[in-house]
């Protein structure tokens, strides 16, 4: 028995079915607690007023927007090295979630930006790199949709994801070079002096955990759908031959 056995499609379907409700339950609990705590039981910021509370959606979404890409990169590498079908399908399943998270991050950012900076959008490095990330997601998803043979699609999107990652990081540095921004530093970091104070920090962590759990649940669910779709495909191909 090795760890990789759980990546067999049948095994995967087996162990995810009972796990899924718990993941979604925990995600719902965390999000309910975190959001209610954040929205109603934290003080208004002395400068930003109540607008600061959008942080409980903005920061977790932005975290997951980049986190999803890293998860896709890891899944792509596993597919290339070990050729586990579930890994490739999980990467495929994650992409639209990452796209949505990026979009939520951009929209909540715009809503926050209007009262704070007086504008919905500015070509600030952070904002711009999220926009570029959005384009990467679009290209990745379009690539999956365009190729008929599922294994070739998995191969090609994996290469795209790996090369894309390098260019995404390059772009991140390039936009810093191109424009110094107005966006504040990271809201959460272990050593920074200026990160948000404890009253805001605790519900934020709960919200982030909630988003991660929600992401895991959605990826598992979507991967299960992809596996079923592949199974239908395989059965149809077999029926045609019979």
């Amino acid at each position: 028995m090795s760890f990789w056995e759980y990546a067999n499609p049948k095994k995967f379907m087996g162990w995810t079915a009972p796990v899924l409700p718990y993941v979604f339950g925990a995600a719902a609990l965390c999000l309910t607690v975190g959001l209610i705590w954040g929205f109603f039981f934290t003080p208004d910021d002395f400068r930003q007023g109540s607008t600061v509370k959008i942080i409980y959606l903005h920061v977790p979404a932005a975290t997951m927007a980049t986190g999803t890409w890293f998860m896709m990169l890891a899944a792509s590498l596993i597919w290339v090295v070990r050729r586990h079908h579930v890994s490739a399908l999980a990467a495929r399943a994650a992409a639209p979630i990452g796209l949505t998270m990026t979009l939520i991050g951009l929209l909540t950012g715009a809503i926050w930006g209007q009262p704070m900076w007086g504008t919905y959008w500015a070509w600030d490095p952070r904002l711009t790199s999220f926009l570029i990330l959005f384009l990467f997601y679009l290209g990745y998803i379009a690539m999956w949709e365009a190729i008929e043979d599922p294994d070739t699609a998995a191969d090609l999107t994996s290469v795209l994801c790996m090369v894309g990652s390098v260019f995404a990081i390059l772009s991140r540095y390039a936009v810093n070079f191109w424009n110094q921004g107005l966006h504040q530093g990271a809201s959460l970091s272990l050593d920074a002096e200026e990160h948000v104070s404890d009253v805001f920090w605790q519900p934020l962590v709960i919200c982030i955990v909630g988003f991660v759990l929600l992401f895991v649940g959605l990826v598992l669910m979507r991967t299960r759908t992809e596996i079923r779709a592949r199974r239908i495909r395989a059965l149809e191909a077999r029926a045609r031959r019979a």
């Binding site: 570029i132 384009l135 990467f136 679009l138 290209g139 379009a142 690539m143 365009a146 190729i147 070739t152 090609l156 290469v159 795209l160 090369v163 894309g164 260019f167 390059l170 772009s171 540095y173 390039a174 936009v175 070079f177 191109w178």
Partner: peptide
Amino acid sequence: ALTVGLRRGGLLLSLLVLPLYVPTLIF
């Protein structure tokens, strides 16, 4: 090379390549 086998690869090619051009364009 990514889009070589595709029937309507041209449009997808632009979608894939243009984001990769960002750093070169900026510098």
